[in-house]
Amino acid sequence: MQIANITIPLALAILFAGNASAQQVVKIGTGSPLSGPSAHLGKENENAARMAIDQLNAKGFMLGGKKVKLQLLSEDDGGDPKQGTAVAQKLVDAHVNGVVGHSTSSTTVPASKIYNDAGIPQISPAATAPAYTRQRFPGAFRLVASDVKQGSTLAKYAIDNLKARHIAVIDDRSTYGQGLADEFVKGVKGAGVNIVGREFTNPNATDYTALLTSIKAKKPDLVFFGGLDSVGGPMLKQMKALGINAMFMGGDGICNESLPRLAGDALGEGKVVCAEAGGVTGPQEQAMLEFRTRYKQQFGIDIQMYAPYVYDAVMVMATAMQKANSAEPASYLPELKKIRYEGVSGTIQFEPNGDLKDAAVTLYTYKGGKKLKITVVR
């Protein structure tokens, strides 16, 4: 008997040979806010992850002497904790080999338990909440400084450089915003500083008149905000409208290229000081500049914040897999723990709890509508 002029034994041999040579697919999951007020940051992170995976595939990614295809599974967590856990479960059910994400602390922390229970390594390129690594999950890592470092660095600058003595503190009640504000308050305590008010809003609010009016009566020389640019920008506008002339300070949530657009002329000249949970100096600056150039060439837009850290997170995970000659989480996790990788964001090594070793914080201000570096602190 013949099938299409091929004998059955020969047809079976061809079929089995094809199956034997089928290329292995390694799935990398990522969760970012691709919708909602922080979608501009989430899309950047998705772009950077895709950029890294495309580059690795183009070079021919190998594991154990065999070519492997990397596949990105990108999901929208909306920056919402409940949606974030749903995304985490979806990625676990899809049998991802590792996760780069999430982008916000509010989604990263609750999602991390789901990944931990499934034994899937997770590298967050942007979550700064101390709670993330304080859980001591063996597969949880981050590529940026935590809010402990951010808050203390901003506090020291507010006291030593800005000479702030009467400070109002506002946060958006998110895991990130409240945590950062708490760390800032810890940093200024005992330094002759008077916290004249501690107010809060929420990430979806648009009117801050009541809390700002209360703050204005207390005559602060600095307003510290723990939250994102989608609130920080409009808040600056309303501060100007109310005649509040205080300096404005915040963390990485506001410290990006979108703030001038969101704040308009309320941004002022050198009125805003913010921190980015990362930073490079010396020879590493050239590598960062080259990456920024490549990103803009590919996507037609400038980097706003954490694209280099997302890119490096993918590269670090892929490198650990290659060192282990396996994409199985249990096999490459030990390599991830002891890795030393020279990335575009600097040297990457992890502390036993998953925090980045020797993490940097970069302080910025804005002049002429442009974000300008003040200094890098380690």
Rank of each mutant, 00 (worst) to 15 (best):
A49D: 11
A131K: 15
Q122W: 02
I28W: 06
Y332S: 06
A88L: 04
S214T: 14
P234L: 09
L262E: 12
V99F: 03
Q178W: 00
N245I: 02
T108W: 03
K66S: 01
G192N: 12
Y311D: 02
D160T: 10
P308W: 01
Y176I: 12
A58N: 07
Y208P: 11
C255L: 05
G101T: 01
L289R: 15
D54C: 07
E257L: 07
D117T: 13
H102I: 02
V273Y: 13
T206K: 13
V25E: 14
G253S: 02
S124T: 15
A320F: 04
S230Q: 12
G279D: 03
A168E: 08
A39N: 10
A360L: 00
G232N: 05
R173P: 00
K69Q: 15
G64M: 00
L63S: 06
A49F: 08
V87L: 05
G84Q: 04
S103V: 14
Q297V: 04
L72E: 13
A58V: 09
F184N: 06
T281K: 12
G300T: 06
D229M: 08
S106G: 15
L56E: 10
Q89V: 04
F224N: 02
T108P: 08
S146P: 13
L372V: 15
P81N: 10
N325P: 02
A275K: 00
D312H: 02
S326W: 05
L222F: 06
G31L: 12
G65M: 01
R378K: 15
T365Y: 08
L72F: 14
G346R: 05
G233R: 06
A58G: 09
G268D: 08
M305E: 13
G233E: 04
P308V: 01
M317I: 14
G282E: 06
N161M: 09
I170N: 11
P121I: 02
K156D: 12
A275D: 05
T347W: 09
T128F: 01
I374S: 06
V26N: 11
N116F: 03
Y311E: 01
A263K: 10
V272F: 04
V376T: 15
A131T: 14
P138W: 03
I195F: 06
G36P: 11
D171H: 15
T347P: 03
Q83N: 13
A52T: 08
P110M: 11
A48H: 09
S105M: 10
S74K: 07
P234R: 08
Y295K: 04
A246I: 08
N116K: 04
V196Q: 08
N97D: 14
I215H: 08
S124F: 05
A140Y: 00
S258A: 13
G190A: 09
G119V: 07
V316P: 00
G60N: 01
G187W: 03
G354Q: 06
K371T: 11
L211M: 14
D358I: 10
P138D: 09
A324H: 01
G177A: 07
I301N: 09
A127Y: 05
M247T: 13
L212M: 05
H166F: 12
A210T: 15
A324M: 01
L56V: 04
Y311L: 02
A330H: 03
K113G: 14
A4G: 00
G369C: 11
T206N: 07
Y341H: 07
S38M: 12
